[in-house]
Design a binder for these strands. Structure first.
Lengths: 141, 141
DNA sequence: CCAAAAGCAACCATATTTGTTACGTCCGGC
DNA sequence: GCCGGACGTAACAAATATGGTTGCTTTTGG
């Protein structure tokens, strides 16, 4: 259980929702999504809950309820997913404050922050170039 | 203690080694490096041990020993550091195998692998544009 | 009203990271 | 050749995150 797989879970769920939609099933339950991903339904509800808060899916409760895409699959990028489910930085700064008596300890944090932000931005830009529709298309190809 | 700060620790240590070198101290002990980073000397020896295995620093043992840069600071990039300190994937695939009965479960892994690799490559490319000398220069500016 | 399904809280097991202690190993200097 | 300083490393603890599981509450269509 090292690196987190939340983007994977969420992308899988969205691709599956879209495929089901194309097949005429507008709504899937968390159990049905969980069956494809081979995990627990609670995990799916947690993940899709994040996506719902970001507007990427809609959830209906009550009898006959379930999840649907919140907007067309071609308008949901992997960046949208990443932002919805994984708010952690890719690289962390010091855990405890460095020694401010030392010139390096005093000045390094803003420099690394800038640098990490720059790298993270390029990472995000790549994710932004892919949509759920693209992913599903490549899966079915 | 969530996200790991190993790149930060290693970059800090290298910048500090370079500054010491410019000031005439070719060798620093793990205790001296730890003092700037405000952590334990064992953490430094572990981190610099990784860097040594990658050739980024040299370690001398015995009396009066310590660590020095393995090559000029202008020739050590942040990517070198990232690769040296055991880079985990930025995004993980499924934790347990998805349901292969489902078209999405069957096909999604290579697609996401490709996509994650592409994003990771751009992340790495940004790290590769920065050297320890650049970082130190910006710290002192 | 009822039943189905999301929402949610409380756990548990596992893994990782950082930190700490302790000890082995190496090696320059006396 | 010994000695002491410093790296190398193993073992362990505390804190945190993740994934998983169970059980209960809430919502809502029929």
């Amino acid at each position: 259980m090292a690196a987190n797989s939340r983007v994977t879970i969420a992308a899988h769920a969205l691709a599956w929702l879209e495929l089901a939609r194309q097949r005429g099933r507008e709504v899937l339950t968390s159990d049905e999504v969980a069956a494809s991903i081979n995990t627990n339904a609670v995990i799916i509800r947690r993940s899709l809950g994040d996506l719902q808060r970001a507007g990427l899916v809609t959830a209906r409760r009550g009898n006959g309820a379930g999840f649907s895409l919140g907007r067309p699959a071609a308008e949901i990028t992997l960046l949208d997913i990443w932002l919805a489910v994984s708010p952690e930085p890719l690289l962390a700064l010091h855990h405890s404050e460095p020694n401010l008596e030392c010139p390096v300890g005093r000045g390094i944090r803003p420099v690394l922050t800038d640098l990490y932000d720059e790298a993270t931005d390029t990472f995000r830009a790549t994710l932004a170039r892919w949509t759920v529709a693209d992913v599903l298309e490549r899966i079915l190809a």
